[in-house]
Protein backbone atom coordinates (compact mmCIF):
# COMPACT_ATOMS: atom_id res chain seq x y z
CA UNK A 1 0.00 0.00 0.00
CA UNK A 2 1.35 3.41 -0.89
CA UNK A 3 2.20 5.57 2.14
CA UNK A 4 1.17 8.77 0.42
CA UNK A 5 -1.41 9.19 -2.32
CA UNK A 6 -2.39 12.40 -4.04
CA UNK A 7 -5.48 12.15 -6.22
CA UNK A 8 -6.75 14.90 -8.50
CA UNK A 9 -5.32 17.62 -6.33
CA UNK A 10 -6.03 21.18 -7.36
CA UNK A 11 -4.95 24.37 -5.61
CA UNK A 12 -6.45 27.79 -6.21
CA UNK A 13 -5.66 31.20 -4.82
CA UNK A 14 -8.14 33.91 -4.03
CA UNK A 15 -6.99 37.32 -5.10
CA UNK A 16 -8.48 40.76 -4.82
CA UNK A 17 -8.02 43.17 -7.66
CA UNK A 18 -9.73 46.25 -6.35
CA UNK A 19 -13.00 45.00 -4.91
CA UNK A 20 -13.30 42.09 -7.29
CA UNK A 21 -12.43 38.70 -5.96
CA UNK A 22 -10.72 36.43 -8.43
CA UNK A 23 -9.78 32.79 -8.10
CA UNK A 24 -6.62 31.58 -9.78
CA UNK A 25 -6.26 27.89 -10.21
CA UNK A 26 -2.55 27.13 -10.26
CA UNK A 27 -2.64 23.37 -9.86
CA UNK A 28 -5.26 21.17 -11.49
CA UNK A 29 -5.49 17.41 -11.31
CA UNK A 30 -2.18 16.40 -9.80
CA UNK A 31 -1.71 12.70 -9.17
CA UNK A 32 1.22 11.03 -7.45
CA UNK A 33 1.73 8.07 -5.17
CA UNK A 34 4.65 7.39 -2.91
CA UNK A 35 5.75 4.02 -1.54
CA UNK A 36 7.92 3.34 1.47
CA UNK A 37 11.54 2.69 0.53
CA UNK A 38 11.38 4.46 -2.79
CA UNK A 39 12.36 7.83 -4.15
CA UNK A 40 9.89 9.60 -6.36
CA UNK A 41 11.44 12.43 -8.31
CA UNK A 42 9.04 15.18 -9.24
CA UNK A 43 10.37 17.09 -12.24
CA UNK A 44 9.05 19.94 -14.33
CA UNK A 45 9.75 23.54 -15.20
CA UNK A 46 9.42 26.35 -12.66
CA UNK A 47 5.79 27.23 -12.15
CA UNK A 48 4.55 23.72 -12.85
CA UNK A 49 3.32 23.43 -9.25
CA UNK A 50 6.04 21.31 -7.71
CA UNK A 51 6.57 23.32 -4.53
CA UNK A 52 2.85 23.90 -4.07
CA UNK A 53 2.35 20.15 -4.03
CA UNK A 54 4.81 19.90 -1.15
CA UNK A 55 3.13 22.71 0.75
CA UNK A 56 -0.31 21.24 0.13
CA UNK A 57 0.74 17.87 1.53
CA UNK A 58 2.13 19.56 4.66
CA UNK A 59 -0.83 21.91 4.96
CA UNK A 60 1.28 25.05 4.98
CA UNK A 61 -0.24 26.84 2.00
CA UNK A 62 -1.01 30.53 2.51
CA UNK A 63 -4.41 31.46 3.93
CA UNK A 64 -5.87 32.55 0.60
CA UNK A 65 -5.29 29.13 -0.93
CA UNK A 66 -7.94 26.46 -1.17
CA UNK A 67 -7.47 22.88 -2.23
CA UNK A 68 -9.63 20.24 -3.87
CA UNK A 69 -9.03 16.55 -4.30
CA UNK A 70 -7.80 13.91 -1.92
CA UNK A 71 -4.48 13.43 -0.14
CA UNK A 72 -4.15 10.16 1.74
CA UNK A 73 -1.49 9.26 4.26
CA UNK A 74 -1.14 5.56 5.14
CA UNK A 75 -4.50 4.87 3.55
CA UNK A 76 -6.39 7.52 5.51
CA UNK A 77 -7.40 10.91 4.27
CA UNK A 78 -5.05 13.69 5.33
CA UNK A 79 -7.36 16.30 6.81
CA UNK A 80 -6.07 19.69 8.04
CA UNK A 81 -6.27 18.39 11.61
CA UNK A 82 -4.21 15.33 10.78
CA UNK A 83 -1.75 17.48 8.89
CA UNK A 84 -1.23 19.62 11.99
CA UNK A 85 -0.50 16.52 14.03
CA UNK A 86 1.65 14.76 11.45
CA UNK A 87 3.81 17.49 9.98
CA UNK A 88 7.29 17.52 11.43
CA UNK A 89 6.57 14.15 13.01
CA UNK A 90 5.60 11.71 10.25
CA UNK A 91 6.06 13.97 7.24
CA UNK A 92 9.13 16.19 7.12
CA UNK A 93 10.27 18.84 4.70
CA UNK A 94 13.82 19.40 3.55
CA UNK A 95 13.81 22.93 2.20
CA UNK A 96 15.76 24.61 -0.53
CA UNK A 97 18.30 26.83 1.16
CA UNK A 98 19.75 28.24 4.32
CA UNK A 99 17.09 31.00 4.20
CA UNK A 100 14.71 28.49 5.69
CA UNK A 101 16.65 28.55 8.96
CA UNK A 102 15.99 31.24 11.56
CA UNK A 103 18.83 33.74 11.05
CA UNK A 104 19.06 34.58 14.75
CA UNK A 105 19.03 31.08 16.19
CA UNK A 106 22.00 28.74 16.53
CA UNK A 107 21.64 25.85 14.09
CA UNK A 108 22.10 23.25 16.81
CA UNK A 109 19.02 24.52 18.63
CA UNK A 110 17.08 24.61 15.40
CA UNK A 111 17.81 20.96 14.73
CA UNK A 112 16.92 20.14 18.33
CA UNK A 113 13.44 21.68 17.98
CA UNK A 114 12.71 19.03 15.35
CA UNK A 115 13.48 16.14 17.71
CA UNK A 116 10.20 14.55 18.76
CA UNK A 117 11.45 11.61 20.83
CA UNK A 118 14.42 11.16 23.12
CA UNK A 119 17.10 13.53 24.33
CA UNK A 120 17.25 16.37 21.82
CA UNK A 121 20.91 17.23 22.38
CA UNK A 122 22.27 13.75 21.94
CA UNK A 123 20.03 13.06 18.94
CA UNK A 124 21.25 16.27 17.31
CA UNK A 125 24.93 15.47 18.03
CA UNK A 126 24.49 11.98 16.63
CA UNK A 127 23.01 13.19 13.37
CA UNK A 128 25.66 15.89 13.03
CA UNK A 129 28.33 13.25 13.44
CA UNK A 130 26.64 11.07 10.87
CA UNK A 131 26.67 13.92 8.37
CA UNK A 132 30.23 14.95 9.20
CA UNK A 133 29.36 18.25 10.81
CA UNK A 134 31.92 19.24 13.43
CA UNK A 135 30.61 19.85 16.92
CA UNK A 136 31.26 23.60 16.79
CA UNK A 137 28.78 23.84 13.91
CA UNK A 138 25.90 23.51 16.38
CA UNK A 139 26.94 26.83 17.91
CA UNK A 140 26.95 28.62 14.54
CA UNK A 141 24.30 30.86 13.06
CA UNK A 142 22.91 30.06 9.60
CA UNK A 143 24.88 32.84 7.91
CA UNK A 144 28.11 31.23 9.06
CA UNK A 145 27.42 27.94 7.26
CA UNK A 146 28.93 27.04 3.91
CA UNK A 147 26.64 25.66 1.19
CA UNK A 148 27.44 22.05 2.02
CA UNK A 149 27.11 22.54 5.76
CA UNK A 150 23.74 24.23 5.28
CA UNK A 151 22.60 21.34 3.10
CA UNK A 152 23.54 18.77 5.73
CA UNK A 153 22.00 20.85 8.53
CA UNK A 154 18.70 21.06 6.66
CA UNK A 155 18.77 17.33 6.03
CA UNK A 156 19.51 16.80 9.74
CA UNK A 157 16.31 18.60 10.73
CA UNK A 158 14.32 16.02 8.75
CA UNK A 159 16.41 13.07 9.96
CA UNK A 160 16.06 13.75 13.67
CA UNK A 161 12.27 13.98 13.41
CA UNK A 162 11.97 10.30 12.61
CA UNK A 163 9.54 11.04 9.77
CA UNK A 164 8.44 8.28 7.42
CA UNK A 165 7.86 10.57 4.48
CA UNK A 166 10.47 13.10 3.48
CA UNK A 167 9.68 15.81 0.99
CA UNK A 168 12.75 17.50 -0.38
CA UNK A 169 11.91 20.70 -2.20
CA UNK A 170 14.69 21.61 -4.64
CA UNK A 171 17.37 20.48 -2.21
CA UNK A 172 20.31 21.02 -4.53
CA UNK A 173 20.20 24.41 -6.24
CA UNK A 174 23.45 26.23 -6.85
CA UNK A 175 25.66 23.63 -5.22
CA UNK A 176 28.82 22.18 -6.64
CA UNK A 177 28.60 18.67 -8.15
CA UNK A 178 30.30 16.95 -5.20
CA UNK A 179 27.86 18.41 -2.69
CA UNK A 180 24.92 17.52 -4.95
CA UNK A 181 26.15 13.96 -5.23
CA UNK A 182 26.60 13.68 -1.49
CA UNK A 183 23.14 15.13 -0.81
CA UNK A 184 21.47 12.78 -3.28
CA UNK A 185 23.30 9.78 -1.86
CA UNK A 186 22.03 10.78 1.56
CA UNK A 187 18.48 10.67 0.23
CA UNK A 188 19.10 7.25 -1.34
CA UNK A 189 20.36 6.01 2.01
CA UNK A 190 17.29 7.39 3.77
CA UNK A 191 14.99 5.62 1.30
CA UNK A 192 16.92 2.37 1.63
CA UNK A 193 16.29 2.56 5.36
CA UNK A 194 12.56 2.45 4.70
CA UNK A 195 11.50 6.06 4.32
CA UNK A 196 9.57 7.36 1.37
CA UNK A 197 11.25 10.30 -0.31
CA UNK A 198 9.66 12.80 -2.65
CA UNK A 199 12.44 14.66 -4.41
CA UNK A 200 11.21 17.81 -6.05
CA UNK A 201 13.73 19.11 -8.53
CA UNK A 202 14.31 20.52 -11.96
CA UNK A 203 17.64 18.77 -12.20
CA UNK A 204 16.37 15.77 -14.18
CA UNK A 205 19.81 14.37 -14.71
CA UNK A 206 20.68 13.90 -11.02
CA UNK A 207 17.13 12.83 -10.24
CA UNK A 208 17.48 9.96 -12.70
CA UNK A 209 20.60 8.74 -10.90
CA UNK A 210 18.92 8.01 -7.60
CA UNK A 211 15.14 7.94 -8.09
CA UNK A 212 12.94 4.88 -8.53
CA UNK A 213 10.06 6.67 -10.20
CA UNK A 214 9.78 9.94 -12.06
CA UNK A 215 6.69 12.14 -12.05
CA UNK A 216 6.66 14.80 -14.74
CA UNK A 217 4.65 17.98 -14.07
CA UNK A 218 3.43 20.40 -16.69
CA UNK A 219 1.42 23.56 -16.00
CA UNK A 220 0.04 22.26 -12.70
CA UNK A 221 -0.82 18.74 -13.81
CA UNK A 222 0.99 15.41 -13.79
CA UNK A 223 1.50 14.31 -17.36
CA UNK A 224 3.40 11.11 -16.63
CA UNK A 225 4.59 8.85 -13.85
CA UNK A 226 7.19 6.38 -15.04
CA UNK A 227 9.78 3.98 -13.64
CA UNK A 228 13.24 5.44 -13.94
CA UNK A 229 14.39 2.67 -16.31
CA UNK A 230 12.19 4.11 -19.07
CA UNK A 231 14.44 7.13 -19.37
CA UNK A 232 17.09 5.88 -21.75
CA UNK A 233 18.17 6.02 -25.38
CA UNK A 234 16.12 8.43 -27.43
CA UNK A 235 13.26 8.13 -24.98
CA UNK A 236 11.34 5.51 -26.93
CA UNK A 237 9.90 4.05 -23.74
CA UNK A 238 8.75 7.38 -22.35
CA UNK A 239 4.98 7.76 -22.61
CA UNK A 240 4.11 11.44 -22.79
CA UNK A 241 5.35 13.73 -25.58
CA UNK A 242 6.32 16.41 -23.00
CA UNK A 243 8.45 14.05 -20.91
CA UNK A 244 9.97 12.76 -24.10
CA UNK A 245 10.78 16.32 -25.16
CA UNK A 246 12.29 17.05 -21.71
CA UNK A 247 14.49 13.99 -22.00
CA UNK A 248 15.59 14.83 -25.50
CA UNK A 249 16.37 18.41 -24.54
CA UNK A 250 19.12 17.28 -22.17
CA UNK A 251 22.60 18.20 -23.43
CA UNK A 252 23.91 14.62 -23.30
CA UNK A 253 20.94 13.38 -25.35
CA UNK A 254 19.74 15.11 -28.49
CA UNK A 255 19.89 18.63 -27.03
CA UNK A 256 16.74 19.64 -28.95
CA UNK A 257 14.56 22.17 -27.16
CA UNK A 258 10.83 22.28 -27.79
CA UNK A 259 9.47 25.59 -29.06
CA UNK A 260 7.06 27.66 -26.99
CA UNK A 261 6.70 27.81 -23.23
CA UNK A 262 4.48 26.50 -20.45
CA UNK A 263 1.13 28.37 -20.35
CA UNK A 264 0.42 30.69 -17.42
CA UNK A 265 -2.21 29.36 -14.97
CA UNK A 266 -4.50 32.26 -15.87
CA UNK A 267 -4.56 31.42 -19.59
CA UNK A 268 -4.68 27.68 -19.85
CA UNK A 269 -5.75 26.23 -23.20
CA UNK A 270 -8.86 24.08 -23.46
CA UNK A 271 -8.34 20.34 -23.68
CA UNK A 272 -4.86 18.90 -23.24
CA UNK A 273 -2.60 21.57 -21.73
CA UNK A 274 0.36 20.48 -23.81
CA UNK A 275 -1.54 20.30 -27.12
CA UNK A 276 -0.48 23.75 -28.42
CA UNK A 277 3.18 22.69 -28.31
CA UNK A 278 2.72 19.03 -29.17
CA UNK A 279 3.74 17.57 -32.51
CA UNK A 280 1.28 14.72 -32.09
CA UNK A 281 -1.70 16.94 -31.34
CA UNK A 282 -4.97 16.26 -33.18
CA UNK A 283 -8.25 18.23 -33.08
CA UNK A 284 -9.47 15.68 -30.53
CA UNK A 285 -6.74 16.77 -28.07
CA UNK A 286 -8.23 20.25 -27.89
CA UNK A 287 -11.67 19.02 -26.81
CA UNK A 288 -11.24 17.74 -23.25
CA UNK A 289 -8.34 17.34 -20.92
CA UNK A 290 -7.32 13.66 -20.97
CA UNK A 291 -7.59 11.61 -17.77
CA UNK A 292 -4.59 9.93 -16.18
CA UNK A 293 -4.49 6.31 -17.39
CA UNK A 294 -2.33 3.27 -16.69
CA UNK A 295 0.10 2.29 -19.40
CA UNK A 296 3.00 -0.16 -19.38
CA UNK A 297 3.60 -0.01 -15.62
CA UNK A 298 3.31 3.75 -15.46
CA UNK A 299 0.69 6.46 -15.79
CA UNK A 300 0.14 8.96 -18.57
CA UNK A 301 -2.21 11.80 -19.40
CA UNK A 302 -2.31 11.58 -23.21
CA UNK A 303 -4.79 9.94 -25.55
CA UNK A 304 -2.13 9.14 -28.14
CA UNK A 305 0.47 7.60 -25.86
CA UNK A 306 1.29 3.97 -26.51
Amino acid sequence: MPILEVENLSVSFKQYTGLKQKTHKVISSLNVTLEAGEILAVVGASGSGKSLLAHAILGILPRNASICGVIKYAGEELTPDRQTVLRGKEIALVPQSVNFLDPLMRVGSQVRTSVKNGDAVSVQREVFERYHLRQEVEKMYPFQLSGGMARRTLLSTAMVSGAKVIIADEPTPGLDPDVIKEALNNFREVADNGCAVMLITHDIESALNIADKIAVFYAGTTVEVAPVENFKGHGEEIRHPYSKALWRALPQNDFIPIPGSQPHPSSLPAGCLFAPRCVMATPECRQVQPEMRKLRGGMVRCIHAT
Binding site: G88, P95, S97, T113
Partner: peptide, 20 residues
Protein backbone atom coordinates in the same frame (compact mmCIF):
# COMPACT_ATOMS: atom_id res chain seq x y z
CA UNK B 1 10.88 31.15 4.55
CA UNK B 2 12.11 30.24 7.99
CA UNK B 3 8.68 30.61 9.54
CA UNK B 4 7.25 28.50 6.72
CA UNK B 5 9.82 25.85 7.50
CA UNK B 6 9.10 26.11 11.22
CA UNK B 7 5.44 25.51 10.45
CA UNK B 8 6.39 22.56 8.27
CA UNK B 9 8.14 21.14 11.33
CA UNK B 10 4.92 21.33 13.32
CA UNK B 11 5.44 24.59 15.19
CA UNK B 12 2.45 26.89 15.51
CA UNK B 13 0.82 29.63 17.53
CA UNK B 14 2.61 30.93 20.58
CA UNK B 15 5.58 28.54 20.36
CA UNK B 16 6.22 29.68 16.81
CA UNK B 17 6.11 33.32 17.86
CA UNK B 18 8.27 32.73 20.91
CA UNK B 19 10.97 30.81 19.02
CA UNK B 20 11.16 32.73 15.78
Amino acid sequence: DYVLFARARGEQGFVLFWRH
